[in-house]
C-alpha cells in the first residue's frame, strides 16, 4: 500500500471499527514518515465524530507516546469538553514543552481560568513562546498579570530577565 492509499484506508478502517484506531495511529509514522503528524489529527478528528468516538480519542491519549498525545491534543476541539479537560490537565502536568504548548492551543477554551493561568505561567518557565497560546490577549486577566509580575520580580532578584514575549505582555497590560 502506498502512503497515499494508506490514509483513506485507515479512515475507512476506523469507521468500520473504532477500536482499530489505536493500532492505526501508532503505525502512522512507519507508513507515512513525516506526514504522519497531520494524518493522525485527520484520523482522530474523524474518530471523534463516531458514536463513542470521543472515548476512543481519550483512549489513544492514555495509551499513546508523545507523538500520539500531541495529535490528540490538536484534535481535542472536536471532542466534548468533559472528555477534553482531563487530557489537557494531564498534558499541563507534564514537563514536555511540546505537550504543554499543545494543551494551550484552541482546545484550552475548555480549561477553567485558574488552570489556564497556571498553564500560561508554566509556558514562561519552560520558554514556550506565548504566541501559540490561544486567545491570550482576550483571556489574560489582572490575576495572570500579577502572577507574571511576581515572576518578573524573582527573576530580577536573580539577575535574570523574563522571556521577551512575557515581558511585553506585562508592560502592555500594566499601562
Amino acid at each position: 500500500m502506498t502512503p497515499d492509499e494508506w490514509l483513506p484506508a485507515a479512515q475507512a478502517g476506523i469507521r468500520q471499527d473504532p477500536t482499530a484506531a489505536a493500532r492505526l495511529l501508532a503505525e502512522a509514522p512507519r507508513r507515512l514518515g513525516r506526514a504522519s503528524a497531520a494524518a493522525r489529527v485527520t484520523l482522530l478528528t474523524a474518530l471523534a465524530e463516531l458514536p463513542d468516538g470521543p472515548a476512543h480519542v481519550a483512549g489513544v491519549y492514555w495509551t499513546g507516546d508523545s507523538g500520539e498525545r500531541l495529535a490528540v491534543l490538536a484534535a481535542l476541539p472536536s471532542v466534548p469538553q468533559a472528555v477534553a479537560v482531563p487530557l489537557l490537565e494531564d498534558a499541563l502536568r507534564s514537563n514536555d514543552a511540546r505537550l504543554v504548548a499543545a494543551a494551550l492551543g484552541p482546545a484550552a477554551t475548555a480549561l477553567d481560568q485558574g488552570t489556564w493561568r497556571q498553564g500560561v505561567l508554566k509556558c514562561v518557565f519552560l520558554g514556550i513562546p506565548l504566541a501559540g497560546v490561544h486567545d491570550l490577549d482576550r483571556r489574560a486577566d489582572p490575576e495572570l498579570i500579577a502572577m507574571l509580575g511576581g515572576l518578573a520580580a524573582e527573576r530580577d532578584a536573580a539577575g535574570r530577565a523574563l522571556p521577551a514575549d512575557a515581558a511585553a505582555l506585562l508592560t502592555e497590560t500594566r499601562q
Binding site: P29, R30, L92, R93, N95, A97, R98, V100, A101, Q118, L121, K122, V124, F125, L126, G127, I128, P129, L151, P163
Partner: peptide, 26 residues
C-alpha cells in the same frame, strides 16, 4: 525495525531557553 530515525529535531525548550532542561514552575 524500519523505525530508526536519526534526524535530531531541536526541542522547543532547547531552542528558546538554552540547552538546559527547563524546570516547569508547577
Amino acid at each position: 525495525s524500519g523505525k530508526l530515525d536519526l534526524t535530531v529535531e531541536p526541542a522547543p525548550a532547547a531552542t528558546f531557553a538554552g540547552s538546559s532542561i527547563a524546570r516547569g514552575g508547577s
